[in-house]
Design a protein around this nucleic acid. Structure first.
Lengths: 88, 88
DNA sequence: TTGATATATTGAAATGTGTCTATATTATTA
DNA sequence: TAATAATATAGACACATTTCAATATATCAA
């Protein structure tokens, strides 16, 4: 786990919203996700790549669709590490 | 509390290190903090301002010194809000 | 009051980030 | 196979961020 990379990924309003949408909707495709934004498709794709690269979001290929979901394990691990490093 | 502002403040290696140093050392001055870095004094001052603006760091003026400390309440509030918004 | 010390501010350079349009790639379906 | 649909990549632009040197401000001490 790259702590700083995850922190940077979380430090953007669009990506934070993506995570909230994915948490609320479970597995959805990129297209469905895009419907929640006025941003262009490449922009959403770019943000998804950042979330994927730090392993906060998982992608399951299903034909021409990509099913997205939050890697809750990684999110939990991030919270715990942050708390441990900073607070304890 | 401005969640995104705090996330951005945490998403920098130098500022993260500042918080860790402050957590480990309690109240120290800017000068003592700078001793932990090879960065210039204005650079550290700049990062401190960002941490102060989002209320993660408190400053107590003591003559010509500024005594720094982490606002643990804010840090805890941040963790809880993040967890509540994302996980629950 | 003057010189020294601690911190903040300014302005500039380099680098990073978010966004778009255009286009490529991959998979489906007619 | 050809057209369509879903997603990814490339390149460009504007803006933000990190850093520094120079300087300003504030406080202490002689």
């Amino acid at each position: 786990m790259n702590l700083l990379k995850i922190s940077k990924a979380l430090a953007d309003g669009t990506r934070y919203k993506i995570l909230k949408i994915l948490m609320a909707n479970g597995e959805i495709s990129c297209g469905e996700l895009e419907d929640h934004f006025t941003l262009s498709q490449p922009t959403i794709s770019h943000h998804l790549k950042i979330l994927y690269d730090c392993e906060l979001v998982s992608v399951k290929k299903d034909g021409q669709h990509s099913l997205l979901s939050v890697n809750k394990k990684m999110l939990e691990k991030y919270f715990e590490t942050l708390k441990m490093e900073l607070v304890k």
